[in-house]
Simulated scan of single mutants.
Amino acid sequence: MATFSIASSGWSRLCQSLGKAMRLSFSGSESDLDKTVVERIGDPLTHPVHNAMSQGIERPDVRKALEKPAPGRLRLHAFHDAGSIVI
């Protein structure tokens, strides 16, 4: 079994390319998954994270003008439910 985790280096490059600042955090990282499952969910998970960053998180200057913290925050949570993993 493999521990659920996602490398954040790809997200850092994505933040830079979009001109966004973001904190990415994970919970439920102790959820055990088969290594092949971990490998297979990486690409499908990229799309909603990219959308959240590009459409849901403002540029740091806009966030400051709105009196929000400069970096946006995205949290991913994984847990087991009835034999399935939910993210």
Rank of each mutant, 00 (worst) to 15 (best):
L14N: 00
L14A: 07
L14R: 00
L14Q: 02
Q16A: 15
Q16H: 07
Q16N: 13
S17G: 08
L18G: 00
L18Q: 02
G19H: 09
K20G: 01
K20Q: 09
A21C: 11
A21G: 10
A21P: 01
M22T: 06
M22N: 02
M22K: 00
M22V: 13
M22R: 02
M22E: 02
R23V: 12
R23W: 01
L24E: 02
S25G: 08
S25A: 14
S25L: 07
S25D: 05
S25N: 06
F26P: 01
S27D: 15
S27Y: 02
S27C: 08
G28W: 00
G28T: 12
G28C: 10
S29V: 13
S29N: 10
S29R: 05
S29W: 01
E30C: 04
E30K: 08
S31L: 10
S31F: 04
S31H: 06
D32G: 12
D32H: 15
L33V: 01
L33W: 00
L33T: 03
L33G: 02
D34C: 04
D34Y: 05
D34T: 06
K35F: 12
T36Q: 14
T36Y: 14
V37E: 08
V38L: 15
V38D: 05
E39A: 04
E39G: 01
E39S: 01
R40G: 06
I41K: 03
G42Y: 07
G42H: 09
D43P: 09
D43W: 01
D43Y: 01
D43H: 07
D43C: 08
P44K: 12
P44L: 03
P44N: 01
L45R: 03
L45I: 10
T46V: 11
T46P: 05
H47F: 13
H47C: 12
P48H: 07
P48W: 13
P48Q: 07
V49M: 15
H50A: 15
H50I: 14
H50V: 14
H50G: 11
H50D: 11
N51Q: 10
N51W: 06
N51A: 08
N51D: 12
A52I: 03
M53F: 11
M53T: 06
S54N: 10
S54M: 13
S54E: 13
S54G: 05
Q55A: 08
Q55C: 11
G56F: 10
